[in-house]
């Protein structure tokens, strides 16, 4: 009995101390970590638009986010509605509106949200605002988000953060599309593919192959097991050549499929399929959203 007590006390004290240390460090580092994640996200977005340390973004470049949710009704579990949280403009300025759509894509309800645009990137703030308008019976489940980059009143690009299955684990990526849905850029944000094989998906010579693919081609993009032509590789890696020559060379590869990475066909296919899926579902949803907004007379903030 004595031993049981001694062992139990010993382990409880160990756990307690370990908990104190970890809890303390968590409290100290939590804010900094969140800030970093947000910063990395923003840097990725700017990088895809071609801005960085040496080329600062213009002052009037703004990011407007659309958040997609699934709404579950406690009374009718089978029925799930789609909801978009979109920034709209009215006389007083910008505010968020929640558009609830049926599964057929018809607008059911448009609700005003009490959510300041600056705080919308915080998942907690959004959830609170949603709970306030939806009531207790309905539950909102976060789907994904899309960001529209605007400069003045002109759309510059759509930025789509997303995740899709890779060879081993989920790959987190961001896809940038031109206003006409041509691919503007691809960035792999997190992955756990094999270093040296599937890990090469982060390299310029792979991800830049997607750049400039028109939407029509993107929808039926495939992966081919052919060696990457040397002159194409040089362009993809950003070799210094005259712009005219570059454009001529690139147009030659514009309608080509994606060249698979050596020894990592599965990873190459996973990325291609994932980006394809992200782009096509976004294009479909976005067009629908725009249609609804125009029939409802809403002025979208992008």
């Amino acid at each position: 009995m004595n031993q049981i007590l001694r062992i139990t006390t010993g382990l409880i004290i160990t756990c307690f101390l370990a908990g104190l240390v970890m809890g303390g460090v968590f409290t100290i580092t939590h804010d900094a970590k969140k800030k970093n994640e947000h910063m990395i996200f923003e840097e990725t977005m700017l990088g895809l638009l071609g801005y960085g340390k040496s080329t600062p973004p213009p002052q009037d470049l703004k990011f407007k986010a659309i958040y997609r949710y699934l709404i579950e009704d406690a009374k009718d579990i089978e029925r799930k509605d789609l909801a978009y949280m979109v920034p709209v403009l009215d006389d007083k300025g910008e505010k968020f509106k929640l558009l609830i759509l049926s599964q057929e894509g018809e607008l059911k309800e448009a609700l005003d949200l009490k959510l300041e645009p600056e705080k919308a990137f915080e998942a907690k703030e959004r959830q609170e605002a949603l709970e306030a308008v939806l009531g207790k019976e309905k539950r909102a489940i976060y789907g994904d988000s899309a960001i529209v980059a605007v400069q003045g009143d002109k759309r510059v690009a759509y930025l789509l953060p997303g995740r899709f299955p890779g060879f081993k684990t989920m790959i987190k990526a961001m896809l940038a599309l031109e206003p006409d849905f041509t691919v503007k850029g691809v960035e792999i944000m997190e992955h756990e593919e094999d270093p040296g094989l599937g890990g090469e998906i982060t390299q310029d010579y792979f991800k830049n192959q997607f750049v400039g693919k028109p939407f029509g081609k993107l929808k039926e993009l495939k992966v081919v097991k052919e060696p990457l032509p040397e002159e194409y590789r040089k362009i993809l890696e950003g070799a210094q050549i005259p712009p005219q020559e570059r454009a001529r060379q690139l147009s030659q590869f514009k309608d080509k499929d994606i060249y698979a990475l050596t020894g990592a066909t599965i990873s190459s296919k996973a990325v291609t399929e994932g980006l394809k899926g992200m782009a096509s579902s976004f294009a479909y949803r976005f067009k629908n959203l725009e249609k609804i907004a125009s029939t409802q007379g809403l002025r979208l903030a992008f």
């Binding site: 010993g10 382990l11 160990t14 756990c15 370990a18 240390v21 970890m22 460090v25 968590f26 100290i28 580092t29 939590h30 900094a32 970590k33 970093n36």
Partner: peptide, 21 residues
């Protein structure tokens, strides 16, 4: 168990510190 706790604690601490700073 005590060793495992100790190691896991330090790994978690280092993980959190690296992620933050």
């Amino acid at each position: 168990p005590t060793y495992t706790f100790t190691i896991a604690t330090w790994v978690t601490v280092i993980d959190m510190v690296l992620a933050a700073y």
